[in-house]
């Protein structure tokens, strides 16, 4: 049984997690500037508010912190935690890079998978990790996602997944590209088994992850302000030589264009997911 095990904090945003630190200000309390409203926010207040500023700006969140926020207390059981990528192509610098990232993030790979209860509803849960090579998908991420969907088919469980990704992990070349096909096939089998899959797109969800399992859910939610797109904004600007429209590739933009079901702020996510899960709780009509 793998209990939630917080790794050594990586930056000031993770310290303490959400349950500790009473909301009060000491004279010397550290603050964090919000990139949206530019106000200085005492860190304790940020922690108490799931890393959301009073103005609504959602800071990025570590995978395990998010699991603690979404899963019922002590309900998360990690699966496939031993899987991680080697350097299959002997890509220059990759091994060093991945070792540095492992040490800094405390994670073996860019995704955490397992089972959990959300509002007393049992489900499979995956959360991608932005602090691990920006959630890029290599062979291990593909293998873990695929294994989780197969597990969900075997035990007839819904899947809830939080995506965050810069796309495919180029250091694994073609093998990472093929993970798009592999994960999509696993999602399809889960779907064909009549099971529910809810994706929550968080900042940023792009590239090969958008073009595979992020966009294949029955119900697709997004966090406010999250970047959601396929191609990188700079690449598009260079290709088209046109200025990008206001709010291009935000969660609000993809909602307007019909590609997500709803934008759900962090504070409402757990209840929202629980409600949806409950409405699909296995009693087929």
């Amino acid at each position: 049984m793998a209990l939630l095990n917080f790794m050594k904090p990586m930056n000031e945003l993770e310290e303490g997690g959400r349950t500790s630190a009473p909301v009060q200000r000491d004279a010397g309390e550290p603050e964090k500037k919000c990139p949206n409203c530019h106000k200085e926010i005492p860190l304790s207040r940020l922690w108490a508010n799931d890393l959301v500023c009073a103005c609504g700006y959602h800071f990025r969140m570590k995978a395990r912190q998010r699991i603690q926020m979404i899963a019922d207390k002590d309900s998360f059981r990690e699966l496939f935690s031993g899987m991680h990528s080697d350097n299959p192509l002997n890509f220059p610098g990759y091994r060093e890079k991945i070792e540095t990232v492992r040490a800094a993030s405390g994670e073996k790979e860019a995704i955490v998978c397992g089972t959990a209860m959300i509002g007393n509803q049992r489900c499979c849960l995956f959360v991608m990790e932005s602090y691990f090579m920006m959630g890029s998908m290599g062979s291990a991420v593909g293998e873990k996602i695929t294994s989780l969907f197969e597990y969900a088919v075997q035990y007839r469980l819904p899947v809830v997944g939080f995506t965050v990704s810069g796309g495919a992990r180029m250091q694994e070349g073609l093998l990472s590209l093929m993970q798009m096909a592999k994960t999509s096939a696993a999602v399809k089998r889960h779907s064909d088994a009549g099971l529910l899959y809810i994706a929550v797109l968080t900042d940023p969800t792009t590239g090969g992850v958008t073009a595979s399992f992020a966009m294949e859910a029955d119900i697709i939610l997004a966090e406010p302000g999250a970047t959601v797109g396929f191609a990188g904004a700079r690449v598009i600007e260079q290709t088209t030589k046109k200025p990008l429209p206001e709010g291009f590739q935000t969660a609000e933009f993809v909602l307007e264009h019909g590609f997500v079901d709803s934008i759900v702020p962090r504070s409402a996510q757990k209840q929202y997911l629980a409600d949806i899960l409950q409405m699909h709780d296995g009693r087929a009509v």
Partner: peptide, 26 residues
């Protein structure tokens, strides 16, 4: 590669590719 354009994003380039991968698999 798939076109990197404003309209392509507005019309869901990622979703279109994702759906092909999923449907082709079966």
């Amino acid at each position: 590669g798939a076109y990197c354009g404003i309209g392509a994003e507005e019309r869901g380039q990622g979703q279109a590719i994702a759906e092909n991968l999923m449907v082709m698999s079966t």
